[in-house]
């Protein structure tokens, strides 16, 4: 039983990682990874929405008619996203300001809707929780890794703390849109290479 739950959890971390394997949820992955703080906050916010909507949907799945499945899911997700948005604005105004538009856009993050469709609507609540935690963590660690690389190379700091010292000439391109695309491309390529070696 526990072992099975662990398999559900582990799935999202690597084998079916939402970003590097399934390649979904790309917009926030590129947009908010210019600093580690933003990346981490976005990962946590997305995980929270994923977890709460998976719990609700897996619990009430038998009451939702099949034809209105998707609209119902989107409604539930949008409700949790609004909650998250107001919560951050009230208690973490700085984070809310720097993520701005990308908090509401969690509504249309394919990762969230995709997991409801593929997992929560077919499995019991405890397995849905394991899945949501795994996928959320899988999403978060890639965001943090990517933002660490971009912040370090682009501004010479991590979490806003200077790491590389004054001799380092920051590569501003890394914190710009172009740097986001290129570093994610290289990261996915690197993961492909590691997977290939593993096989």
């Amino acid at each position: 039983m526990l072992k099975k739950l662990f398999v559900d959890f582990k799935n999202g971390l690597w084998r079916e990682n939402p970003i590097i394997v399934l390649v979904i949820g790309m917009c926030p992955t590129l947009a908010v990874t210019n600093t580690v703080e933003n990346g981490l906050a976005m990962g946590i916010a997305t995980s929270f929405v994923l977890l709460s909507s998976e719990i609700v949907i897996s619990t009430f799945k038998n009451y939702i008619p099949n034809n209105v499945r998707i609209p119902s899911f989107i409604l539930i997700i949008a409700t949790f996203v609004t909650f998250t948005d107001y919560f951050l604005k009230a208690f973490f105004p700085d984070i809310a300001a720097s993520l701005s538009l990308f908090i509401p856009l969690i509504v249309v993050n394919c990762l969230i809707l995709g997991r409801q469709e593929a997992f929560a609507s077919k499995n019991p609540t405890h397995r849905a929780i394991a899945d949501a935690l795994g996928m959320g963590l899988g999403f978060t660690w890639v965001l943090v890794l990517l933002s660490a690389v971009r912040e370090l190379l682009g501004m010479g700091s991590i979490f806003g703390i200077e790491i590389l010292g004054s001799w380092y000439q920051p590569m501003v391109i890394m914190v710009l849109p172009a740097g986001a695309f290129i570093s994610l491309g290289i990261l996915v390529g690197l993961m492909n290479y590691l997977k290939r070696r593993g096989n």
Binding site: Y63, S72, L75, I76, A78, T79, T82, F83, Y86
Partner: peptide, 18 residues
């Protein structure tokens, strides 16, 4: 009915959050 119920619950919950 399903969509309406979800909509109403969501609106009430969010008005409290607001």
């Amino acid at each position: 009915l399903t969509l309406t119920v979800i909509g109403i619950i969501s609106a009430i919950a969010l008005s409290f959050v607001y």
